[in-house]
């Protein structure tokens, strides 16, 4: 599905293979990422949740769990797509060596997107298992939360790869943070959209993470509506645009 399908149809799957080779030894880096969303769930959901009560008839931990799942998929994907791709592109010269083989910029862009998406998915699965055990999945629709997390990961991985090709130094990562943090805080993660004045609500609705959270929340709570395909289409679209930008930029940077 999504970037995996693209990767298996191009030579992108070879980048996936390389990354598995690397992380077989550095598994701690990936493993440690599982816990952050869980810590948030216990702290905000069960700790603070006591003072919040129910939102739309849903207990607070169950309300934020899907949001944390979507954020986990986003963070895993974006972190990998920006930091790792930037390093390989500017310092590691990893892609230079790949382009001396039959691999081309498309394979690199697609393969790295697939990997970043995969990392996001891993975190989503880890979180999902725990959240389900805690009763946060209230409907059989919840099974669709994982494919939804894949779409979320794809969208953010694609955008992340695209952005990574524009970063010039480690200082530029501050700019990435300046976008990510407000998105995490204001996209309906911890409270419903109705808290905002109407004008602001429309700003939040275009945030990619808001769409991701709506999508996953619809499934875990079983409130599936026609917004779901819209949310998914939006995320798929930004992912595709990101990959296309990355392919062009990488060709420009590497094939000179």
């Amino acid at each position: 599905m999504t970037a995996f399908a693209l990767a298996s149809r191009t030579r992108g799957h070879l980048l996936f293979e390389r990354n598995i080779m690397v992380y077989r030894r550095a598994w701690m880096t990936i493993f440690s990422g599982f816990f952050e969303p869980l810590f948030y769930l216990f702290s905000m959901g069960y700790g603070l949740g006591h003072f919040v009560g129910k939102i739309h008839g849903v207990s607070y931990p169950h309300y934020i769990a899907p949001a944390l799942l979507a954020s986990a998929a986003m963070n895993g994907a974006v972190y990998d797509a920006t930091t790792n791709v930037f390093w390989k592109l500017r310092y590691g010269k990893v892609y230079d060596s790949m382009l001396a083989t039959p691999l081309g910029p498309v394979d690199v862009a697609v393969g790295e997107t697939a990997w970043a998406q995969f990392r996001g998915l891993l975190y989503a699965i880890g979180f999902m298992v725990t959240a389900a055990a805690l009763g946060a999945v209230q409907s059989w629709w919840g099974l669709l939360a994982l494919p939804a997390a894949m779409v979320v990961g794809f969208g953010f991985a694609g955008v992340g790869i695209g952005v990574a090709t524009f970063l010039r130094s480690w200082q530029d990562f501050e700019l990435v943070q300046v976008v990510l943090l407000p998105m995490f805080l204001f996209s309906g993660t911890f409270y419903p959209l109705s808290v905002y004045p109407t004008v602001l609500q429309w700003f939040v609705r275009v945030s990619p993470l808001y769409n991701a959270i709506s999508l996953v929340r619809s499934f875990t709570l079983g409130h599936v509506t026609w917004y779901c395909p819209l949310n998914a289409a939006y995320l798929l679209a930004i992912g595709v645009v990101g990959i296309a930008v990355a392919r062009r930029r990488m060709a420009g940077l590497l094939l000179t």
């Binding site: 030579r11 293979e17 390389r18 080779m21 550095a26 010269k93 060596s97 039959p102 691999l103």
Partner: peptide, 26 residues
């Protein structure tokens, strides 16, 4: 291709460098 500056994959071992490179060639 042996480029002017080495572009070896520092995240991999010596042998892994050869293995994955061969995989790139199919």
């Amino acid at each position: 291709v042996v480029p002017q500056a080495d572009t070896l994959d520092n995240e991999l071992t010596v042998k892994e460098n050869l293995v994955i490179y061969g995989r790139y060639f199919g």
